[in-house]
Structures are given as C-alpha cells and as structure tokens.
Amino acid sequence: MNHEAPLVNFLGLTFNLSNILMVTVASAIVFLIAVLSTRALAMKPTGMQNFMEWVMDFVRNIIKSNMDWKTGGSFHILGITLLMYVAISNFLGLPFAITYNHELWWKSPTADPVITLTLAVMVIALTHYYGIRMKGFKEYGKDFFRPMSFLFPLKIIEEFANTLTLGLRLYGNIYAGEILLGLLAGSLAATGAVGWIAASVPTLAWLAFSVFIGGIQAFIFVMLTMVYMAHKVSHDH
C-alpha cells in the first residue's frame, strides 16, 4: 500500500510519471473509443454509434436540466469529453494496479488529487470565463453581490469551496475504492489459500460497486460542472 510515486524533475517542474502515463492512456482510450465508434456514421445508427448518441443525449439532458439549450449548447462537447474522460479514468484502476520497484505505475489518474483538482480548477475557470463572456463583466461582477451584498465574502468562499469539493469528491471516491481493492486483492489474498478464497467474494462485490461509483462520479462531475456553469451564465437563478 505504501507505494512511492515515480517522480521526475524536468524544467523545474515535478512530474509524476505514473500520472503522465495514466493520463495519456486514459486520453488515448477515450479517443479510440470515440473515433472508432464514429467511423461509419449512418442515418440509421448501429452498434457503437447508438451508444455514442446515447452519451450525447445523456449529456444534453444534463445540460438542459440546468440551463436552456441556447446557452448550454456550447458546453456540449466539454460535457461529453469530461464524462468520457472521467469515467474511463475511474475504470482504469479497477482491473489491476501495477507497481514496479515499489513505485505505483498503473492506477486511476483520478485517484490522484492533483489530477482531479486540475480538472476542477479548469472547470471553475471556464465557468468564470463564460460568465464574463456571455453576460459581460459588469453583470458578472454584480452576481457576486446577489441576492444580498453582505453575502459577498460567502460568494468568494463558495468559489474556492466549489473547486475543492468538485476535485476532492472525485479523488476521494476513486482513491478509496482503489485502496480497498488494494487491501483485498493485494494484502488479504496474498496471505494464502484461505485468504485468497476469503478475499475473492468481497473483491468481486467491491469491484462491481467501484464500477458503479466510477460511473456515478463521472456523472456527478459533469452534472456539477453544468450546475456551476449555469450559475455563472444564466440570468435568472
């Protein structure tokens, strides 16, 4: 459990090579799934195209439940990409973990707070950007004093709280899942035949639950992204 991270210093920045690897793998898988399923597009959808269209409709519904489609339509691609990327990232650490020289290489990229907080900050930054772009700087600034001006400090805190909760919720869920999986599969199952048998049932159950959690967390991440976005870009809330 006590694994080191393969850290490398380069150009004055610290890189966790495990994160670099997993981010790349997750991105590649998302890209491959998306591109392969949209190769033979047809008016009558079949197979993977159906799935992708379902994902698109799913994200469209998330956006529509938060804002009208006229303003929300521009976040469609962001939403789909986030959903796919976060979901795939969550699933990556489930089948196995790879350690080499006591360094953890294969895991969910979302089981690292740096990655999830990066995504969260990016989302919050985007909400501010679109808030200014769609409503103008004046309206955007005024929103910090609504509905009461004395709530201004709370509004500021809210922004940071939103960022932290958005990132840490995802991280916590996935990291906890992997820790427990590691304990079950790595420690309990390694104690012998009895341990292996004793571990297999809860491991299976926990794996199933982790798949569920991974999907749910991806959905929640996108949902909250759109909620925050709606707070910034819609005029009435």
Binding site: L13, T14, F15, N19, T81, Y85, P109, T118, M122
Partner: peptide, 12 residues
Amino acid sequence: NGGDIAFQLLMF
C-alpha cells in the same frame, strides 16, 4: 506537482 497539472490540462 506542477508538471502533472500542466500535462493534464494540456492533454485534456
């Protein structure tokens, strides 16, 4: 971990 952040952002 500035590198991770930059890489993640860029990749996304």
